[in-house]
Amino acid sequence: MSDNQLTKHFQDQIDQEVKIEPKDWMPEGYRQMLIRQISQHAHSEVIGMLPEGNWISRAPSLRRKVALLAKVQDEAGHGLYLYSAAETLGIDRDELIAQLHQGKAKYSSIFNYPSLTWADMGAIGWLVDGAAIMNQVMLTRTSYGPYARAMVRICKEESFHQRQGYEILLTLVRGSEDQKAMAQDSLNRWWWPALMMFGPNDEDSVHTQQSMAWKIKRKTNDELRQQFIDATVPQADYLGLKVPDPDLKWNDERGHYDFGPIDWDEFWQVVKGYGPCNRQRMRDHIAAHEEGAWVREAALAYAEKRAARLETAVA
């Protein structure tokens, strides 16, 4: 088949909701977009371990400690599933990690904000995981098979993450004045960055249109953001916490909440590397990777030695 025919066949498959699998022909642009998006998603999971990992040692009860440990561990697992999905596109994890360390690949900017109090473990679970879930549920229907399958697994596991976050906040707002204040402060700090997680407005999003045509994404940034706000505001009301947006108001006509303008200058500042923790997060990740190099090498050396010994023993 000619390239044109292949492209047409490919788009027909997509339009008919037939999943694309690793060995199928695909346009180079599709492959590149997937690698970019899946690896960005994987990096987000892995860098996302750091702000929460910051509180494992200080979790204020043993029940909270095991829940948080299990949650952060899940994120490692999700990173792993996603790296595996990306690897089916012919790039290996080490290369993806190198791109991250060289600043060529991005991760979700939200993880460049610091986790300052225990309440942040609540807000991250509730808002950050909540926002991520909106995106991830959509991606269970994405057109690339391995990505969709990874997302199904991730969504299944994620279901407890948001609940554990919300439960932390629920406990705080039912506690002392100090605890309530801690919860409110945390919502104040995380609300806007959580809204920014969905990315720029649709008209400013360079990839949205192509991504939708290829059915990698199935909803636009603004649709997902609205969906998130509509779901989350009543949850904030239940907690008795005030969402830090004076313009936030239910709009009967639209059937949605109206909300105030997002500070896109702040968004781009953090994306471009000037957020509160960008350098710290990257330094920590690079350090772990480099300090692990001798371990990875030694394990491989041992495996090779052992295989050689077995061969000699057989011969």
């Binding site: 561990q73 792993l80 697994r153 394990a299 495996a303 295989a307």
Partner: peptide, 24 residues
């Protein structure tokens, strides 16, 4: 088939699979 992972040998692959894919 549930996915893939990296390991230095088969034994480690089984253990990693246990830790990664059977946590629940």
């Amino acid at each position: 088939h549930v996915g893939s992972l990296h390991a230095s040998d088969a034994q480690m692959a089984i253990e990693n699979a246990r830790d990664v894919y059977t946590r629940r």
